[in-house]
Design a protein around this nucleic acid. Structure first.
Length: 344
DNA sequence: AATTCGTGGCT
DNA sequence: TAGCCAAGAAT
């Protein structure tokens, strides 16, 4: 009698139904796999496809990225979100370029900024084609269903258990195919909603399916309400040029170019007096939703006298650019919304 | 341990 | 359509 082996069943399914045509599925370039793994963190494949080729085209090797300046990199990540990923990738590329060789072990990969245990596993497996184990959203969903884990997976006890299961199931033979396969299964069959159990190679051995729990798992925590914050945005216009500030490296939109944002109500009046700003020519409002809060941004458009231009840029620590040049330098999506709203 | 960190595809 | 949530890591 034949025994059910998780990896055998998965690999057999993968050979016929897996994704084999993604641009980062290369056997000869850990750098491309690396870039893709960072871009794909919390980001759908379809979204990354719009950025990956352009990024690789501009920075074809780790040396190209590692020796570039941040200002050269930012435009190629702008709009993709989670900008700490780009800052860490850039920093790490500098380290690898200086060393002149890629990390060779899980620990060496994890020592680089922006690379945690799962991404390091992916790089061992998909990048170097050695042994590596991953633990992404797909794997968590597949395992939580296969083993019918009905509790909050973010609890440390389950976090540890999931890694143990993932390592136990992960084969040495065809390791990189298996890594790709379990993500493909999660993305195309064992989906978050309406999983296609009929087409799943695990169907008869999946505890969630056996118990009719596939639509209930994985366990979802009660979602807390998303707070709404408001802020004012200075749209300082001098002819065609607007005043832009580069955001500090840490925090929201770190390293991107933004219009000056005032989060405290009293800041505006202070600012108007100190800077000699006259009356608001026009107001525009936009709403921008993040995962953790919604921002109501009120754009205050000022017509700036050319005599004040240099003073303002020094005082506010910014530079004057036309919106098209700011976009070229790298701005977050909300700023694009404000530009559009200001031109109506 | 709980937060922070973006944006867009999908239903 | 409003909400879910995606190839997570850092703090």
């Amino acid at each position: 009698m034949s025994m059910f082996v998780f990896s055998d069943a998965l690999l057999e399914w993968f050979d016929v139904h897996g994704r084999h045509d993604l641009p980062w599925q290369v056997s000869d370039d850990p750098y491309k796999v690396w870039v893709s793994e960072i871009m794909l963190q919390q980001t759908q494949v379809k979204t990354v496809l719009q950025y990956f080729d352009r990024f690789i085209g501009r920075f074809p090797t780790v040396q190209d990225l590692g020796t570039a300046t941040w200002d050269e990199v930012a435009p190629y990540w702008a709009g993709l979100g989670y900008y700490a990923r780009a800052r860490n990738l850039h920093k790490a590329a500098g380290i690898v370029a200086a060393q002149n060789h890629f990390p060779e072990t899980l620990e060496e990969w994890m020592a680089l900024p922006g690379i945690g245990r799962s991404t390091a596993g992916a790089l061992m497996s998909l990048g170097l084609r050695q042994y590596g184990v991953i633990m992404d959203g797909n794997v968590k969903r597949v395992l939580s269903r296969f083993f019918a884990i009905e509790d909050d997976l973010s609890k440390p006890v389950h976090e540890r258990a999931m890694w143990q299961l993932a390592e136990k199931l992960c084969p040495v033979e065809r390791n990189h195919d298996y890594t790709q396969a379990i993500m493909d299964l999660g993305a195309t069959v064992c989906t978050p909603k309406k999983p296609l159990c009929l087409y799943c190679p695990m169907q008869q051995h999946c505890k969630a399916h056996q118990q009719g729990l596939e639509n209930e798992l994985p366990f979802k925590k009660a979602k807390k309400s998303v707070p709404v914050r408001s802020a004012q945005v200075l749209v300082l216009q001098c002819g065609k040029q607007w005043l832009w500030q580069q955001r500090p490296n840490s925090g929201l939109w770190g390293g991107l170019w933004c219009l000056p944002i005032l989060e405290e109500a009293h800041e505006l009046e202070q600012m108007r007096q100190n800077l000699g700003l006259k009356q608001v020519a026009q107001k525009v409002g936009i709403s921008h939703s993040f995962t953790h809060f919604t921002w109501q941004l009120e754009g205050l458009i000022f017509a700036i006298d050319p005599d004040l231009q240099e003073h303002l840029s020094i005082e506010l620590g910014g530079i004057w650019m036309e919106p098209t040049d700011a976009i070229r330098a790298g701005i977050p999506t909300a700023m694009k919304k404000l530009i559009s709203a200001s031109k109506l």
